[in-house]
Amino acid sequence: MRKRLSMLCLLKISLSEIKKTMLKFDNVTKRYPETGDVLRNISFHLRHGEIAFLTGHSGAGKSTLLKLIAVMERCSRGIILLDGENLSGAKEYQIPFLRRKMGFIYQDYKLLQDRTVFDNVALPLVIAGFGHQEITRRVRAALDKVGLSGKEKKYPMALSGGEQQRVGIARAVVNKPPIIIADEPTGNLDPELAADIMRLFESFQQVGVTVLIASHDISLIAQMNHRVLKLDHGQLVSG
């Protein structure tokens, strides 16, 4: 009887644990036919509102791990949960709706060069079917947050690297996703701008957003004093 009760308690705890977990990797392996196991038995989780770095040498598998979260690639084994929803087993028609819950930021910004800053940032909202007024309001707010208000009508080409990355960040947060994922967001920026961008991510974390940043910039990571997940040849060695 007592044993039963304690089991129930355990179950309850683990349920609430799942509830608090934003992102969970459970024994995830990714194998490419050409290169073999790129990620091996990865297990970790991020709680709601947590900020963490994903680090490791070039080719360690950081980008691959993030691609699994974006469902750009499917894992070969294991389970990935995002806010309790199964990413690894998602059906194709579900993928767009799962992606709307994440804000992705890339090293090469991935902006549409023939669209204005406003249109670039508005894209996720247009896709999600928001009305015109709501879009305008939210895009303004997002650009304001990244310090780019007044540049709505400019084209990405006319902006500096740091500014373009801010446009990318504004686009990632405009839909108010509960998690932001960045792949080498400061890779193309000088240290000062990189520190600025990092502070921006911290400010998102402070309002409750979960943040995962892949970076091989060890000195920058050391400055920040946050949780670090370290990959080495496809295996998680710390975190």
Binding site: A70, M72, Y93, P96, F97, R99, R100, F104, K110, L111, L112, L123, P124, I127, A128, R171, N175
Partner: peptide, 14 residues
């Protein structure tokens, strides 16, 4: 192609 990929990555449906 690039535009299509970006739209997909920010949650565009088919």
């Amino acid at each position: 192609h690039e535009e299509v990929v970006i739209a997909k990555l920010v949650g565009a449906t088919r």
